[in-house]
């Protein structure tokens, strides 16, 4: 564990807490893509199956349980409790366009052709693109609530910090995992446009509105 990874994990944790607080406090999931949230729930459940087969540390297990349970809770809030506030007219990204290529890629390019390993690889690839329905929704409506933009910033920052963690591990442990690195870089690049808007607008106290 190095400082970049810890910061990345905390940023990830903060993103999810911000999202849940936004939904709970405003009693609304307006502006949040249910499709992205479904993809994230799929990411956590397929990646953390090793929770039952491989104990790494208490920290690791607690975080895994947190990510799986909060992603299920988010889906419950969006599709059951606050269903009336879910903005499904703007949440129209076809997730099959992501799921099919990611499944094929996971079956073809992996470290080991075993069920757990293929699922781990699938989750890494899926995570890299899972935010696309959300970014598509923001671009479609042309704006995002400030709290939603904080959520997106923390979620994007988490994988960017992981890239520094991988650079650190390469230099100091001689370890690298190309699948994680390539997917992590793709994931971070997808946020770049949003990062630019966040820094130039939200930090200066303006709402996140896309240029017309």
């Amino acid at each position: 564990m190095n400082v970049f990874r810890l910061a990345g994990d905390l940023s990830h944790l903060l993103a999810i807490i911000i999202l849940l607080l936004k939904i709970w406090k405003t009693r609304s999931c307006a502006g949040i893509s249910g499709r992205s949230q479904i993809l994230f729930a799929l990411v956590y459940t397929t990646r953390y199956l090793d929770l039952f087969t491989n104990f790494i540390s208490l920290y690791n297990s607690v975080m895994k349980v947190f990510f799986i349970s909060t992603s299920c809770a988010t889906i419950y809030l969006m599709y059951v409790k606050f269903k009336a506030t879910y903005d499904h007219n703007h949440d129209t990204f076809r997730i099959g366009f992501l799921l099919i290529p990611v499944t094929i890629l996971g079956l073809l390019i992996n470290h080991d052709f075993t069920p757990l390993e293929v699922l781990w690889t699938f989750s890494i690839y899926l995570e890299s693109v899972a935010i696309l329905p959300q970014l598509f929704m923001v671009s479609k409506t042309g704006d995002a609530e400030t709290i939603t933009s904080h959520y997106l910033f923390c979620l994007g920052l988490y994988r960017a910090l992981y890239i520094f963690n991988w650079i650190y591990r390469y230099y100091f442990e001689g370890f690298y995992d190309l699948i994680a690195i390539v997917a992590g870089v793709v994931q971070t690049v997808l946020y770049c446009d949003f990062f630019y808007l966040y820094v130039t607008r939200v930090i200066k106290g303006k709402a996140l509105k896309l240029p017309a």
Binding site: R5, D50, I56, N60, H111, D112, W120, N165, I179, A180
Partner: peptide
């Protein structure tokens, strides 16, 4: 297995 080291990440 070397790649399993990455599985301790989240």
């Amino acid at each position: 297995d070397e790649h399993l080291k990455s599985h301790d990440e989240l």
